[in-house]
């Protein structure tokens, strides 16, 4: 009895009331979404607004929201007060080397544990998962000592060589993707007598563009943002990355907030651009990461 009245109620709603409540609901949703969205974006906007102020305006009381006269000059001054250009080149070099390393090594390993049937592949997969939770601090000190004994401190080798061994996270991401590629493709080539390396390189690798794009972006931002690695290995300020440069600038010119903001803004822009380029891939990676198969 009760059930039937309720179902009558709903049919009633769909006929008359629904369009109106639906509009009201979506207006409410837009209001909530934009208010919280404004809060989320506010610090980000503040970074760019502060970067455009004069030294006087930035300390002005009460503070102005928008700069009176945007000081585009601040961005140029950042490059003049510290060797920001050199730091950018250094950081880009490190990013490129790491990306190349990851794009070679991670797919090879991922292919091995997903398409080649061999004893031990489950062991390797287990190890890969386990290293994802191993804190880097545990191996950091001996690794530093090894590199120091090789005379690699103050070179880029310690900050790039690791990428050529692949990373657990990337291998896992690629494995999830390769598992979804049908075996028929490689089987046909195998019957035609193609070697495994040819199958991998000519058939599988070209299909990996979406996850490889994601890995490129993740690797770029990982290296671009890395602070602890360069801090440990790079003492010579000609080799510094942007993160070290910004930190050095902060400890020397702590009060010049407009320049610090300008430097931070320039440093942030490539990450934002890259995000817009790779948006779709990142979202997909996010969902495939959590679906264990």
């Amino acid at each position: 009895m009760e059930l039937s009245t309720r179902s009558m109620d709903t049919t009633h709603k769909t006929v008359e009331v629904k369009p109106k409540t639906k509009i009201r609901k979506s207006i409410l949703a837009h209001i909530v979404l934009s208010l919280i969205g404004l809060v989320f974006i506010a610090p980000f906007v503040w970074l760019f607004l502060s970067a455009l102020k004069t030294p006087q305006e930035i300390f002005q009381f009460p503070p102005s929201i928008f700069p009176e006269k945007p000081q585009w000059n601040n961005f140029i001054r950042t490059f003049e007060t510290m060797p920001f250009f050199q730091y950018t080149l250094n950081t880009l070099f490190l990013c490129a080397a790491n990306i190349v390393g990851q794009l070679i090594s991670s797919p090879l390993t991922a292919y091995s544990i997903s398409k080649i049937k061999w004893k031990g592949r489950n062991v390797v997969f287990g190890i890969i998962i386990a290293t994802m939770i191993l804190p880097g601090q545990v191996t950091m000190i001996p690794v530093y000592i090894i590199f120091a004994q090789l005379g690699w401190v103050n070179t880029y080798l310690p900050l790039t060589i690791g990428a050529f061994f692949g990373s657990a996270f990337n291998i896992f991401l690629l494995r999830q993707f390769i598992m979804g590629i049908p075996n028929e493709l490689s089987e046909a080539a195998r019957i035609d007598g193609a070697s495994e390396i040819r199958i991998f390189w000519q058939i599988i690798y070209p299909l990996l563009v979406p996850p490889l794009a994601t890995i490129t972006i993740f690797t770029f931002s990982g290296v671009w943002n890395d602070f602890m690695g360069p801090l440990i290995y790079l003492n010579d300020d000609r080799l510094w990355t942007i993160t070290l440069g910004l930190q050095g600038f902060m400890s020397q010119h702590g009060g010049e907030w407009e320049l610090l903001m300008a430097g931070s803004a320039i440093f942030t822009i490539p990450s934002v651009i890259l995000y817009f380029i790779g948006q779709k891939n990142i979202m997909k990676a996010g969902s495939s990461l959590t679906s264990f198969k």
């Binding site: 070679i104 090594s105 991670s106 090879l108 390993t109 292919y111 091995s112 544990i113 080649i116 049937k117 061999w118 004893k119 031990g120 592949r121 390797v124 190890i127 890969i128 290293t131 191993l134 545990v138 191996t139 000190i141 001996p142 690794v143 090894i146 690791g162 050529f164 061994f165 692949g166 657990a168 291998i171 495994e196 991998f200």
Partner: peptide, 22 residues
Amino acid sequence: WLGLGFASPFIIGFLLLTVIPF
């Protein structure tokens, strides 16, 4: 050997930069 070969970048790295330092 094929599987091991393909996985060797990771395995070598794991031995040199994880197991030994660990």
